[in-house]
Design a binder for these strands. Structure first.
Lengths: 157, 157
DNA sequence: GCTTGCTTTCAAGCGCGCTCGAAGCTTTAG
DNA sequence: CTAAAGCTTCGAGCGCGCTTGAAAGCAAGC
């Protein structure tokens, strides 16, 4: 089973040459999903787009993670950049970044470019954390593979 | 950046030929760490070995995940197989398997070989979950890489 | 105007996985 | 014999990340 080896390679790879392709992909993904119509979205539309509940979106706002504008009647209006931020937040959340860490990071973002060194540091830490976690998932994956093989009558030799 | 490609390959790979090597590794890892001295371990020793707290180990027992024997004074004695189970539980926990899912699985284990088909099913489900999660981590990893590149002055071209 | 379905705020509640503390027994060292 | 360290059980507490509910306002269709 080559899983562990592949994981090692993922984690070792210092990043290939095709960086700009991925950059484009990132912006496209964020914008294609989102900028298709540049209209601001209601909380329900935003929730559907990022796969969260409206409750969660309001909770995120309460925590200062996102600040959608309001229309005349006080309804939230999520702009393209709000949505891009939500995509970012959601991805990081799914990788296990805590709400608190995201709060700290977003606070720095809203303080302007002077906080870039600290933001970079945070992203580097998150990167380490994610890599560690991928390694742990690799171990668990092997464990399931091992069990399944045994349950299948360990035809390994 | 080849990360995504590598992840795809990990997830696509139908498992190479070296299965028995990994099987051996599993048993070695479980036994080398553990069987070195075949003596039963106290709760503190067991906790240190698997990297959990004694509180957590007692909690796991309370939840039925492990049943160490007791000595004459009522102290827990973790056998090699108890420890192997703890390693299994810890790995699965670190991959995000819930305590409840583990309870269900262990219950089946203790019901004997007749539950093997269902256990196999559970492991297959976990495997899917873990792969999905690796994919999500891959996305988050790309996101951090993208941010860092930008913070470094996006020297991508 | 009424109903339906969205939106708002605010506060309370919840499931998970520990984590801690109290009160007491056992073992070990001096 | 005593003190310190480690074990026991039990129940309560906690941080996280939502989730739910109540009470009320707004928008669109009939």
């Amino acid at each position: 089973m080559a899983t562990q080896a592949l994981i090692e390679r993922i984690l070792a790879a210092g990043d290939g040459p095709s960086s700009s392709a991925i950059d484009a992909l990132h912006e496209l993904l964020d914008d294609a999903t989102i900028e298709a119509s540049a209209m601001p979205r209601s909380v329900a539309e935003a929730a559907r787009l990022v796969g969260l509940s409206t409750h969660t979106l309001r909770y995120y706002e309460q925590e200062g993670l996102v600040r959608p504008a309001r229309n005349a009647s006080g309804y939230r209006e999520y702009s393209a950049s709000d949505l891009r931020r939500l995509v970012f937040l959601t991805r990081m959340r799914l990788s296990g970044t805590t709400i608190n860490d995201l709060k700290r990071y977003i606070l720095l973002v809203e303080q302007g470019p002077s906080t870039i060194p600290e933001r970079r540091r945070i992203m580097l830490d998150q990167q380490d954390r994610i890599r560690r976690q991928i390694r742990e998932l690799g171990l668990a994956l092997e464990t399931t593979e091992y069990k399944i093989r045994i349950y299948d009558g360990h035809p390994q030799g």
